[in-house]
Design a binder for these strands. Structure first.
Lengths: 238, 238
DNA sequence: TAGTGGTCTAGACCACGAC
DNA sequence: TCGTGGTCTAGACCACTAC
């Protein structure tokens, strides 16, 4: 929904120009952005205005600026993706790297709830990915991911890597930049118990995620159930 | 611990001057800060430098800037405090206002773990506050708060309000600005079951919080156990 | 209309990184 | 030594709020 804005500062327009170039691939992840002076000349604004636009992109972690080096488009590396969206850690805060296994994918019609959440039309198809993730060689998280086929045409015929957001960016040009999560405690069902090697009825941490791209459009739904006997979900509130 | 910095930009120094004035009460919460021009004149720097300092404080929600009005020191109002640190919501995202009841306070020696977490010396005393919080007139959260007596001399003889961080600021001049939380799913114990009116063994969401002040010093430990049958812990990752 | 913060410019100089 | 982003200045003009 494009808003009819009465007034749009110059640096916002510059920002949007750069955003468009990133989204359309003219500035690829990992690439160095032209320097401030060059951009200012090209766009016909002052260096300070370009700076303000770049700073605002840096504040959202879309570019990275380094004195003496330059400005580069942020790449969704496995490590980066993990640190941002994978909040499971050891008690005390030490970050973890989970391993995935046995990812199974299938294509099906979206449920009513999925259509509402992902803004899909009737009868639209989704890809569902189910996998178990291990930590310290022990099954710890049971995960189900749902994305629209429209956006990810052949995802169900693609091997699923450990860090899937890097795949979204590399193969489909979609940058996941934010996610809303809701957490609950639930009792393990029979399937959970089998997959995670625990007793049915044991308490599990259930995480419901809705992930968004640069434009704020919902892209992915994800449900995770975690055995938190040896892990925690860690978050910092500011 | 003052760090020996090789180089400290002017606007950082201005920022610290203003921070000191807030911390020492020369600029009280709710008060309007002198305008940019006046501050620039007083501190002998340019208006742009003052602006940068104020913007950095605004980015951390310590002051609030409004075009045409001015810059005011942020006050920890109950509503504000809630939205920032109270992450419990109804499924779907609607924010809630919990009510507290039956807060009981006592003074005791800190445990070893508390001494380590709060950076206390041996034999130091803490105040422990226990309460049950209700949502929709139903007990939903069982909460235990631990703070050092040193910082909160007579807290155990003070009525505990619903939003305790406003009390920290108003009565003790301590601003809680960030918190680390760790979440787990646990089975309800007998005490939990009694307090929350649920069956022993039912899954509960356990939240462990460590809250920090402006200087990054640990101030408070908090343990909450939530019945998440009708509530969720909601968080946005960016 | 007056006063505030917000934008924008142009140019100087500084700190950092790479060569 | 050079090129990059980071800081700082001085001043103009704009948009929002209150009177």
């Amino acid at each position: 929904m494009a808003e009819a804005l009465r007034y749009r500062p110059l640096y916002r327009q510059v920002r949007e120009t750069l955003l468009r170039r990133i989204a359309e691939g003219h500035l690829a992840p990992g690439e160095t952005v032209p320097n401030e002076h060059a951009l200012a000349l090209e766009l016909g604004v002052s260096q300070g205005t370009v700076r303000k636009a770049l700073d605002s992109l840096a504040a959202e972690n879309l570019v990275e600026r380094r004195q003496g080096k330059g400005t580069t488009v942020v790449e969704v590396t496995p490590a980066r993706s993990l640190f941002k969206f994978f909040r499971i850690a050891r008690p005390g805060g030490e970050r973890l790297t989970p391993e995935s296994q046995k990812a199974s994918t299938r294509r099906r019609k979206a449920t009513k709830l999925e259509r509402a959440s992902l803004e899909l039309t009737a009868n639209e198809l989704v890809v569902e990915i189910a996998r178990v993730r291990r930590v310290d060689d022990t099954p710890a998280i049971r995960e189900t991911i749902v994305v629209p086929v429209k956006r990810f045409p052949d995802l169900d015929r693609t091997p699923i890597p450990n860090t899937i957001y890097a795949l979204y960016q590399r193969r489909y040009g979609i940058n996941i930049v934010s996610a809303d999560e809701e957490l609950r405690a639930v009792a393990a069902g029979r399937e959970d118990a089998k997959a995670l090697g625990i007793a049915p009825g044991a308490p599990l941490l259930e995480i419901t995620r809705k992930a968004f791209d640069i434009d704020g459009k919902p892209i992915e739904l994800r449900l995770s159930r975690c055995d938190t006997r040896h892990l925690v979900y860690a978050v910092t509130l500011r």
